[in-house]
């Protein structure tokens, strides 16, 4: 585990060694704030107004954007995690180190998860402070929403890292991961067009149902935790197997 921690430190430092993380944080925070305050969430059968139009002290609009915005931002942050190593030829060197593939995978995963969670906290906490200054905000929904977001980010990050491990081109990795996460996000949109026999499955398979209907409203559900853990576990194992295969090759 300590070796995974070493990888974590290396990856974390790598994120902040380039201006990419800073730019992403800045852009993400500003875009989310603009969506939250002014635009709202105009997608789907029940659009949500922006804060000023809605006039209600809650963060539901912000949380509703998270599954979609994270499906774009996480691939952007993780696209280089493996693809760049392969392109630069450092992957072979990494695999010669006295570390098991799962330790590499875990270290990189934790670093990416921590960076994305920093982004989410960076957006959520200031907006919550703002809203609490303007009205009677239910803080418990904020904290539980962040816990739910941690699960969502973990599942998304593990899957996006697999996208990066599949190719040596960062752009291809980004597109693959975005396609995968975007497909998950789309599942709930399909409910309106799906036959009744499929609707329940689509609903249960979509990350929104396990985040927006529960944690984002202040409710923690064991089934949601298992849902996110399963996706995260599947992503990490898949990633490890991909790395093992390459080491084998």
């Amino acid at each position: 585990m300590s070796r995974a921690w070493t990888v974590f430190r290396r990856e974390w430092a790598a994120y902040f060694a380039s201006p990419l993380a800073f730019v992403l944080i800045g852009v993400f925070v500003l875009v989310q704030a603009a969506l939250f305050f002014y635009i709202g969430y105009p997608i789907g059968p029940v659009p949500l107004p922006g804060l000023w139009d809605g006039g209600q002290a809650n963060l539901l609009t912000l949380f509703t954007w998270l599954p979609l915005s994270l499906a774009l931002i996480i691939p952007a942050l993780t696209m280089g995690a493996w693809a760049e190593e392969r392109r630069a030829g450092t992957e072979e060197l990494l695999l010669t180190y006295p570390l098991r593939p799962w330790e590499w995978v875990l270290g990189k995963f934790l670093a990416s998860w921590a960076v994305v969670m920093l982004l989410v906290v960076m957006v959520t906490v200031p907006l919550a402070i703002t809203v609490a200054n303007l009205g009677d905000l239910d803080w418990s929904t904020v904290w539980v929403g962040l816990v739910g977001a941690a699960g969502l980010v973990a599942a998304y990050t593990a899957l996006a890292l697999c996208g990066s491990a599949l190719t040596h081109e960062q752009l291809v990795a980004f597109l693959l991961s975005t396609l995968l996460l975007g497909s998950l996000w789309l599942l709930r949109m399909l409910v309106a067009y799906a036959p009744a026999s499929l609707a329940g499955f689509l609903e249960q398979a979509s990350p929104q149902a396990h985040f927006l209907d529960t944690a984002a409203r202040g409710v923690l559900v064991a089934a949601d935790a298992i849902y996110f853990l399963l996706w995260m576990g599947a992503g990490l194992v898949w990633n490890t197997l991909l790395l093992e295969r390459r080491r084998l090759q």
Binding site: D138, S140, T141, W143, V144, T214, R217, G218, V219, L220, V221, A222, A223, I226, Y227, L229, L230, G233, A234
Partner: peptide, 24 residues
Amino acid sequence: LVEGVHMALRHLDKRHDFSQDQLF
């Protein structure tokens, strides 16, 4: 994964409502 699904079904009712007014 199989066991996870079983666990999910078994623990589906485990929930805690932290919202201020216990709306859910």
